Every structure is written in structure tokens, then in C-alpha cells.
Amino acid sequence: MNNKPISIREVTLHRLVMRLIDPFTTSFGTFQDKEFFVIEMEDETGASGFGESVAFSSPWYSEETVETNKHIMQQFLIPLLLESPIEHPDEVSKRFESIRGNNMAKSALEGAVWDLYAKRNNNPLYKELGGRKQQIDVGISIGIQPTANELVHVVEGFVNEGYKRMKVKIKPGADYEMLKEVRRHFPDILLMADANSAYTLDDIDTLKKLDELNLMMIEQPLSHDDIIDHAKLQSELATPICLDESIHTVEDARKAVELGSCKIINIKIGRVGGLTESKKIHDYCAQQGIAVWCGGMLEAGIGRAHNIALTTLPQFVLPGDTAASSRYWEKDIIVPEVIVENGVIHVPDKPGIGYEVNRQVLESYRVDKTVFSKNNIWA
């Protein structure tokens, strides 16, 4: 193991725009172009680690955006990283404590530190995190479809591809009847609904009807910042509630579990501020017997690789959203691309994230580049 502290020499922000193969629709709206940053972090030896930002161009999932991420990284977080060497990636979140919130900006940089640290130790990232699995089960996230028949057709395609779990986005008016039709055609599949905060307690009768459909869970049915009303709703439902947007820290997870607000937690690395906090939430949920799974933010290959590494931890007992690269992109920015075989991803055993960055493809998607060092900032 390389015990020498990491001295970061240079941080490069590659700003990319990639077009999804198909438009993606949730209760928030529809979009097709994904704008994000690839963070490249170089140490004193010339080795590089990579992270990926997950904020969207508009603040519909959270208050963060691509543009706010750039501001926070450039003005506050990168200077903090460059001020002194780093012994271990777990130190990064402590170094960032003076900056409130902005978890997605923090996570993007912390991910690059983790990748670099694992490469310096000549170890796969998943092993540095304490992961054990050689392969992980994966599901698929399906946007809201125009009709129940179209939804059934989409689900059928992914069932035939072997995905282990189907997550269907819902909103008022596009929920029970559509899911009922899916369940009629596929009585035995693992099926869940994701509401992205589209409901209130006034919709409790509609949500209670979903109990008929034997769903794995209903994800984030109520407000993005709520845990109180979710506890009231969970007491009325047989179907487990899974919290997503409400959970940003291990303290949020503790309060939600103690209140009875959920029975499952979706851990998204970007939403909670990085791999270090993700591990803390995972460990707490393992102690409490709360199932966790890894959610997706329509990541390109680098973010997808971080999700794969995290999902090897033992309490990730439910299939996550880390689908194949080809589900979303004509060409991904890593080689090899993420491949799913019969609903399974085989975890790469190479140092770091386990995939190589395809420089040619990255540059073809790149719209801007900014480089930071201890002494200079230049475009």
C-alpha cells in the first residue's frame, strides 16, 4: 500500500454535453441532453483519478445545477483540496465541512480523490471501500410513458434483456392503472414505483391502492424534504416506502428510520456528498436492518463505475439503477463500456474505478475545459 499522502498538482474540469438515446420523462419533466463535468485530478507523480458530477442543468431534482457546481468547485472546494496533501479520501468530506450543502459538487471532487487513492494503492476502488461482491444485480429505471400499452412494451423489452428489477416513474394520473397493466402482464417481476415527490397526503387513497400490486417499494412519494408525512403515510401502507431526495446525510437516515418514515433507503453518491457519506449511511442501515440500493442519476461511464464499486458493499441487497452504458449512450466515455448480462454486472478488478477513460470520446463531447493548479487557473 502507498502510504504517502496525495499531493494534488492539478485539477481539470471537463464540461461535457451528451445526448441520451431516448428522452427521459419523470414527474418533473422531460429532457434528452445531459450536461455534466468530468473531474480529472493529477497527483505529483502524474497519475490521474476521475470523478463525475451528477447535477442537472436545471434545479428540478435538487437546488444544485451544473453552473452552481462549477462556481462552488472553482471558488471554494478546489482551493481547499489544493491547500495541503490528503492522507485518505475520508478526509475530503471533513475538509469541505466549512462549505454548506452543495453535495453534488463535493461528491464529484471526492470521487476523483477516491479513484486516485485506489490507483496509487494498485487496488480496485470497490476493495478500498470495503466491498465484497464480484458481481452485482441491476435493475432499470423507466420514464413515464404516454400509455399503459407503451409502458408494457418497454417493460417487456427489459424483462427479455434480463434486468432484475423494473422501476417505473409515476405521477398523479399516470400511476395505478398503468402499473396494474404492467402487473397483469408480468405477475412475478420485481416491480417498484418512483414518484419523485409528486404526491401529498391528500393522495393517500391512490397510494393505498398501490398495495394491491405487490410492489417492492414506492420511492419518495411525498415532498423532497419531508420525513414526517412519510412516517404517517408508511403507517397506512403495506408497501414499503423508500426515501431518496429526503436523505442527504447519515443523520437524515437515522431520523427517518427512527420515525418510521421508510423501510428502504436509496443511496445516491452525489446526493449525499460522496462515497465517504455513502459508506456511513450504508453502515448505519446495516446495523438497523434497513435495505439499501444504489440509485442512478443518468450517469456516464465514470459515475456509473463509482456506483458499481459502491454497490459491492454487503447491505446493497436490492438491484440498483446502474444499467448498461448502451441503455443511455450511443458511445460512452469509458472502455470497456458497462455491460449487463442477464441482469448482472461483473465488477472490474483493475485498479481504481476499473475502467479506462476514452480520451477521444470525452473530447468529442467536451464543450469547455478549465485547469486549476496551486498557482494558476487557466482555460
Rank of each mutant, 00 (worst) to 15 (best):
R100Q: 13
G274K: 07
P172G: 06
F56Q: 06
D194C: 08
K209L: 14
A309W: 13
G157H: 12
N103T: 15
E83R: 10
F36W: 07
R183Q: 10
I267S: 03
I140P: 02
I333G: 03
E128H: 09
M217R: 02
L179S: 07
E40C: 10
G131W: 06
S7K: 15
R271Y: 02
K331L: 12
E44I: 05
Y126C: 11
F36L: 13
M166C: 06
N196T: 11
E91V: 04
L179F: 11
I78P: 10
A193T: 05
I8P: 02
K280I: 09
D90F: 06
G301E: 03
H346M: 07
L16T: 03
R304E: 01
V38N: 01
H71C: 00
V357H: 02
V66L: 15
M178D: 03
D137P: 08
N3Y: 05
V152E: 04
I339F: 02
G130P: 12
K369H: 03
S53D: 01
G352F: 05
I218G: 00
E35H: 09
H346E: 11
E258D: 09
D252E: 10
G301D: 00
G352P: 07
S58Y: 09
I218M: 02
A323E: 14
P85A: 15
G111I: 07
V38D: 01
A108C: 11
Q360F: 03
F158Q: 04
Y176P: 00
V340N: 08
G101N: 12
N307C: 04
F28Y: 14
C242L: 04
L275F: 10
P172V: 07
N375E: 14
T312H: 06
L20K: 13
A112H: 14
L207T: 06
I227Q: 00
L213Q: 09
E128I: 12
D203E: 11
T25V: 13
K331Q: 14
H346Q: 13
E128P: 02
V92L: 10
D202K: 14
A118E: 06
A300K: 09
D43N: 14
Q134F: 01
A323S: 15
P221H: 10
I189P: 03
S53K: 08
R100E: 07
S7L: 14
T45P: 05
E337D: 11
G131S: 10
A379C: 06
V357S: 01
E87S: 14
K4Q: 15
W114A: 07
V357T: 04
T12W: 05
V154R: 15
V138F: 07
V155L: 09
D349N: 15
K106C: 01
M41F: 11
L77R: 09
E277C: 13
K232Y: 00
M192C: 15
L80N: 03
G101H: 04
E97Y: 12
N307L: 01
G139I: 10
N266Q: 11
L16P: 00
